[in-house]
Design a protein around this nucleic acid. Structure first.
Lengths: 246, 246
DNA sequence: GTGGATGCTCAAAGGAGGCTCAGCATGGCC
DNA sequence: GGCCATGCTGAGCCTCCTTTGAGCATCCAC
């Protein structure tokens, strides 16, 4: 019954309905492309910069709503780029990309100001989720529909509190399980292939085989499908799909 | 009753109604032709390239809406071709053709950005379906998401969820049954020969006999024609046809 | 009506795909 | 350090799908 949902996935947009504008700054073209394509797939308007100089130029001309910024840049330091971007008076929120070990204290300090960071290698699902979080909290971009909850039938996932409930029952998930479930729930009634899931939920440098997806699907089923009628469906030879129970 | 459908099959077009433009890149002429012919039959505007260089040239001049790209090319690597195509600022979605075993290493990360891949040998029905899926999801080509449902009478097939319903009854199909039914439903009231069906639904290197088509027609009938008046008709000596009951 | 061609369906073999278990590695926490 | 939670792998099992062969049914030509 609880299935009179909106036409389709409620994409995040600016108040006037135009696409969110994102600036991606990374000196590694393949990574910049990867992130760029993922965000375009979200329906966002994306521009990429390979250097700090380019980033500043795009920042002035493109006026992004959000910036993905690699700390390590050949010419300018990422933090210096941020300083100059902000010098123009733009309070655009920033998501930093950092190496795992060099999580700068300075970066940590910035998260207090509303910015955020992700360590490499990251999963696209995590990156996009954090960007969505930044946008949602941004006073500048405030879109009317800033609901952090994703619903599929009686299953509710909260992106901010990381809580998952089916009906009245709280479900405890690990980080990976959570990301997998979120990806499924953001694409309800759509079959997602194991390759898609692997590319999206696991880090881009993950070398393992796709059977890991089967295993985590199995974990989710044990925690979610046991609480009621099955919601996670296998489409043999194609992939997996989550849908409300009719 | 529910059969007041549009003039004919709702072909996918660009927003202005002009045909979708596809670029097919494969160094094997016979395969390039096979795919090219199939897409032309879809009503698309097709150009083929046998080398990476040709592909780049066509990419610039022809400005395709979608690209079918073999990973293995004699001159340039398929991924390099993609990189250069995209360097021009064109975010054209790409469907990769890969050998069955060379998938994992190189195509990683591509499906996350909205691109897709198909392993050789593929069935044309699957290839075309995936291309349609890419086009449908592409914000560039189609302004609003096209309808993933195909309807013939009270029979409805959803290409995204892989669900099939006749009236209110859900029908469970296997992957092969689904592809066969989709091919029939995309050509309603048109007799399709067993040879056509075999060429279209089974892989192009399939060695088996054409009686396999009869068997799968039989399966479909058991699952679909038993739910109401028969919709799948045999035209002896010619082939099979699906049509609404009227 | 008869015979041959065409189409239909049953049952079973074989295989691919999916699931799960046991176990190891890692990293955080007490 | 020792413990526990989490992530991941490999192997084996099991289910279900695909394909084949064979036999029967139906249709058409003569």
């Amino acid at each position: 019954m609880a299935d009179d949902e909106l036409p389709d996935s409620p994409r995040l947009t600016r108040p006037d309905g135009s696409p969110v504008r994102a600036l991606v700054v990374d000196d590694e073209p393949s990574l910049a492309d990867l992130v760029s394509m993922a965000l375009k797939y979200e329906g966002w308007d994306v521009r990429t910069a390979l250097t700090g100089q380019q980033a500043l130029q795009h920042g002035r001309e493109f006026k992004p709503d959000i910036v993905v910024l690699d700390i390590m840049l050949p010419d300018l330091d990422g933090l210096e780029v941020l300083r100059r971007l902000r010098a123009d008076g733009t309070d655009v929120p920033v998501l930093f990309l950092t190496a795992k070990d060099s999580v700068d204290d300075r970066v940590v300090g910035l998260t207090a100001g509303g910015d955020d960071y992700v360590t490499k290698p990251f999963s696209l699902e995590e990156l996009v989720a954090r960007l969505r979080g930044l946008i949602r909290r941004s006073t500048l971009v405030v879109s009317e529909r800033a609901d952090p909850e994703i619903r599929v039938g009686d299953l509710v996932l909260n992106e901010e509190s990381y809580e998952v409930r089916r009906g009245d029952t709280e479900v405890e998930l690990t980080a990976t399980e959570f990301e997998l479930l979120r990806y499924l729930m953001r694409n309800p009634k759509r079959v997602l292939s194991k390759a898609q899931i692997l590319d999206r939920v696991w880090s881009y440098d993950f070398g393992g085989r796709s059977s890991i997806v089967e295993i985590y699907i199995s974990y989710l089923r044990k925690k979610i499908d046991t609480l009621g009628p099955a919601m996670i469906h296998t489409v043999r030879g194609v992939g997996y799909m989550i849908k409300p129970v009719t």
